[in-house]
């Protein structure tokens, strides 16, 4: 129904004016120090006007985004695809917490940015009673906890959960009838697979490990990618050269962070046409991704300032902006 999101998209258009543009990002990068950068952010409405740590400020900005979107969309489940990664992050933390028999409250992501409450996951894992969890999560939670308790292999436990998260993201994207959400699911899984394949090839992992780590997606042949990664890093580059991700090879040769930047920029490039769409949920999804990208960039710039990195070095890491 074309009328469903007209009001929401109009609200988003107003908010897009407040997104940090490329010149503002440049001025943040060029700021002489952290305090000056924070002042620029405050001038653009970041934070709540009170003194707060950088992590708190960024967390608050993320909260603002989700609070705004929840005002506009009656059924927030359409955006679950963006939140599954947080659910499975909480699951990994809960599995480790139970296996190590320690409590680490600070690593869990809060309710507003998850689809399953972190406490519910923690209780389920601690009590070994997974019935309260969604079916897709319960199975991998049980298996990952068993692996960690019986073998002590934290890496294997993590990759099992990461893979389950990717499968869920891809499925959620496919189930949605929106191109942006479908693209997000596909691109997230493909980029994660490429990163995992490169890392595994550098660590000389075998094919069995790769089969457990890589999640299927439409734009990559996982069997070919796994075999290439088991052979060598160059074989991965060669395989990728034959896919739609051939442009990523030169970035992968530079560094993992250059590849991550390439992935983020590709995402922004794909969502940019949503600036002109007035009727679908696409502009809302694009706004969420643009805000996440913005928060990631600001975190990178501020940590660069704190660590006294050069302006050029910070600029190399900054992503493209949506507006």
């Amino acid at each position: 129904m074309p009328e469903q999101y007209i009001y929401a998209v109009a609200r988003v258009r107003g908010k897009e004016l407040k997104l940090l543009s490329a010149p503002v990002m440049d001025s943040l990068v060029a700021a002489p120090g952290t305090q000056e950068a924070l002042r620029i952010l405050a001038d653009h409405g970041w934070g709540n006007g009170e003194e707060a740590g950088i992590d708190e400020m960024l967390a608050e900005e993320r909260e603002k985004t989700w609070a705004f979107i929840s005002e506009l969309v009656p059924d927030m489940s359409v955006f679950d695809v963006f939140l599954y990664a947080n659910d499975y992050h909480n699951l990994k933390a809960a599995v480790k917490e139970t296996a190590m028999m320690e409590t680490r409250d600070s690593v869990f992501i809060g309710r507003s940015q998850t689809t399953v409450d972190a406490d519910l996951i923690r209780n389920a894992v601690r009590d070994h009673d997974f019935s309260a969890l969604p079916e897709e999560m319960a199975q991998v939670a049980r298996e990952a906890l068993d692996v960690l308790l019986h073998t002590g292999d934290g890496q294997l436990s993590d990759i099992m959960i990461d893979r389950a998260a990717l499968v869920r993201i891809l499925e959620a994207g496919k189930k949605s009838d929106n191109e942006i959400l479908q693209m997000y699911g596909e691109l997230t899984v493909a980029c994660a697979d490429i990163k995992a394949a490169i890392r595994a090839s550098l660590m000389k992992k075998d094919r069995a490990f790769l089969d457990k780590a890589l999640a299927p997606c439409d734009s990559l042949d996982i069997a070919d990618l796994a075999q290439a990664a088991a052979d060598s890093t160059d074989a991965v580059y060669e395989y990728l050269g034959r896919t739609r991700y051939s442009d990523a090879v030169s970035e992968l040769r530079k560094s993992p962070s250059a590849f991550e930047r390439w992935c983020d920029n590709l995402m922004i490039e794909k969502i940019r046409p949503e600036i002109h769409h007035p009727f679908t949920i696409g502009p809302l999804a694009a706004y969420i991704l643009a805000r996440e990208n913005e928060i990631k960039c600001v975190r990178m710039i501020l940590s660069g300032k704190i660590n006294d990195l050069s302006v050029e070095s910070i600029r190399e890491r900054v992503r493209e902006t949506y507006v």
Binding site: I6, Y7, A8, R13, G14, K15
Partner: peptide, 15 residues
């Protein structure tokens, strides 16, 4: 007019 009104209301909310 209803469609355009929704968009107008969305804009006026913040502006």
């Amino acid at each position: 007019v209803g469609m355009a009104g929704q968009a107008a209301a969305g804009v006026v909310t913040d502006q």
